[in-house]
Nucleic acid binder design. Structure first.
Lengths: 134, 134
DNA sequence: CTAGGTGCAAACCGTTTGCAACGGG
DNA sequence: CCCGTTGCAAACGGTTTGCACCTAG
């Protein structure tokens, strides 16, 4: 049924890059890194593979708070913090409330599969800069 | 300090449209509605006003789960459900956990101002269609 | 072998913006 | 009046896609 999928060196490299960074990089950043290993890789290929990996659940696409998507190599659910000043995006290590899905499912009748939560504000660096300026 | 702002009839109409719908429309939908009242309004003006209203906190921009933004005329925090099949976006009426902001603030040290939560899955219509198909 | 993947570059499309005219306060 | 706002249309920028070639299995 589902289409066969090949492990090309491009896809391998892209996945490795995402798995080995704590950041939540843009497609373009991944492209720049990937070029160091596969010099003639194209940006289109990076996008295609990011979509394939996202569809197969191996990575998460984070597409809020900005005009472009960021990607996260972890695929277990977790929450994020987005700095409204410098656009930094970091993982938040509070437990994921799995029970929320069930609660919303019971409230709405919808089939709830997962949820996302993002916190917004100022990271430490931007908080300090603001304090200094005052 | 902050720039003076004028209440033009375009802005008035856009805000009225958003306040009087339960949907979470795209800029284009707002534009189509606004044209019925101000026939020569331009799409650029709709975008400009949506940004102004968002910046002043009168509406919320919802920019996840799709390639384009949706807008919400309510400005008190609340959660959303996004149907992964038909892209419908609806309000979820479970209480907002204000305490989470403080918890994350204490955990991370960041200045947490607000958070967002979205649930993903299938709405009733798409759930039934899936059941029928099986 | 062969069908899925790739590089390239053009197309796409939601959103932004430069500019001259307009109009709210 | 003055300057923020508008209509128009072109530009922008991140992402997608058509095509001919390539390569993993």
């Amino acid at each position: 049924m589902s289409k066969a999928t090949r492990m090309t060196k491009q896809k391998r490299v892209i996945l490795d890059i995402l798995r080995s960074t704590q950041n939540h990089p843009s497609a373009d950043w991944v492209y720049e890194q990937a070029k160091k290993i596969v010099p003639d890789i194209s940006l289109g290929t990076v996008y295609r593979n990011l979509n394939v990996l996202r569809d197969s659940g191996e990575i998460i696409e984070l597409n809020y708070g900005s005009t472009y998507s960021r990607y996260d190599g972890r695929n277990e659910n977790h929450y994020h913090f987005y700095c409204e000043k410098c656009s930094k995006l970091v993982d938040v290590s509070i437990p994921v409330y799995e029970g929320l899905d069930k609660m919303v499912q019971d409230t709405t009748g919808f089939e709830v599969r997962h949820h996302r939560m993002e916190f917004y504000g100022l990271c430490n660096e931007c908080k300090e800069m603001k304090a200094k300026r005052a």
